[in-house]
Write a protein that binds this DNA or RNA. Structure first.
Length: 270
DNA sequence: CTACGTACCTGCCAGC
DNA sequence: TGCTGGCAGGTACGTA
């Protein structure tokens, strides 16, 4: 489900509806997520005003007067803004109700996501060992070159490791490597400085384009207003094994890297 | 330490 | 029609 672009599109969609709102209470229908929802989740939030909603990698953090709200969408999660009285559907696990009459609804069929209250997630183990944000100057060709030295892991798996850089999941790793002209199976440590630079630039471009187009809707991802993202139309290789390469028309190859479906052009990507 | 496999959970689809 | 296996956007943990 959501990679960085989808999480950022979600943040942009819900922030205007939640920032500055007073929380009337929360409803936890099923708290058995990747981590269990706090037993006292509702009482921690009730009466508080929600402040800025920010993002770190694929995590969303909402500032509260006391503590913070942490949300991760896992593979299948999404957030919606709805009138509080909207009847819940299957997998609508948590609602946060606002005094204005709307609620923020957390929906996640596979329950790989999480929603938690905590004192301060900046120092929480979940956010401690994350690499740089891909859309900041911290993430660059020279950074990639430096931290890939000595690594024998396939560059695609290396790129999807949140300690290397946050937010790049399977879709955008495939797309970025295609754009950079790099074979996803190559050992990360074998890349030269110019290739690392191309890869960093490609990651930034792919992610920025995806955000601008509202993210990628494959199955169940939808923006908080229920609309689909349009980046699916811009996918070059993801999900297109056996189809012609959009650049050279050679048949796109498929393989598995780190257990994840990988697609690449054997002619364009080295 | 790195690299890799597996587990978590549900829904969907192809194939029989 | 109905079952089964395999796969899906993420992450953490165990093992070598």
């Amino acid at each position: 489900m959501p990679e960085l672009p989808e999480v950022e599109v979600t943040r942009l969609g819900i922030a205007p509806h939640v920032e500055g709102q007073k929380i009337a209470g929360a409803e936890v229908r099923n708290g058995r997520l990747r981590l269990p929802v706090n037993p006292d989740f509702s009482s921690r939030l009730e009466g508080q005003q929600l402040g800025i909603l920010w993002r770190r990698g694929k995590y969303l953090v909402g500032e509260l007067e006391k503590g913070q709200l942490l949300i991760h969408l896992g593979m299948s999660g999404h957030l919606r803004i709805l009138p509080s009285q909207t009847p819940p559907a299957a997998h609508d696990h948590v609602d946060i109700h606002f005094a204005g009459g709307n609620c923020l609804r957390f929906h996640d069929p596979r329950r790989f996501g999480l929603i938690l209250w905590g004192e301060n997630f900046r120092t929480h183990p979940l956010l401690q060992n994350l690499g740089p944000e891909p859309l900041t100057p911290d993430f660059s060709g020279s950074y990639l070159f430096q931290c890939s030295r000595g690594r024998t892991q396939a560059v695609k798996a290396f790129l999807m490791d949140a300690q290397t850089v946050v937010g790049v999941g399977n879709i955008y790793a495939n797309e970025s490597l295609f754009l950079a002209g790099l074979d996803p199976r190559r050992p990360a440590g074998g890349l030269g400085p110019a290739q690392c630079r191309r890869l960093a630039i490609s990651v930034k471009q792919v992610l920025a384009d995806a955000i601008a187009q509202g993210g990628t809707t494959l199955r169940d991802f939808a923006r908080p207003d229920g609309r689909n993202g349009h980046f699916r139309l811009s996918l070059r290789v993801y999900g297109k094994e056996g189809e012609p390469c959009p650049r050279c028309t050679r048949t796109l190859a498929g393989t598995r890297i780190g257990g994840r479906a990988s697609v690449f052009c054997p002619r364009c990507q080295h």
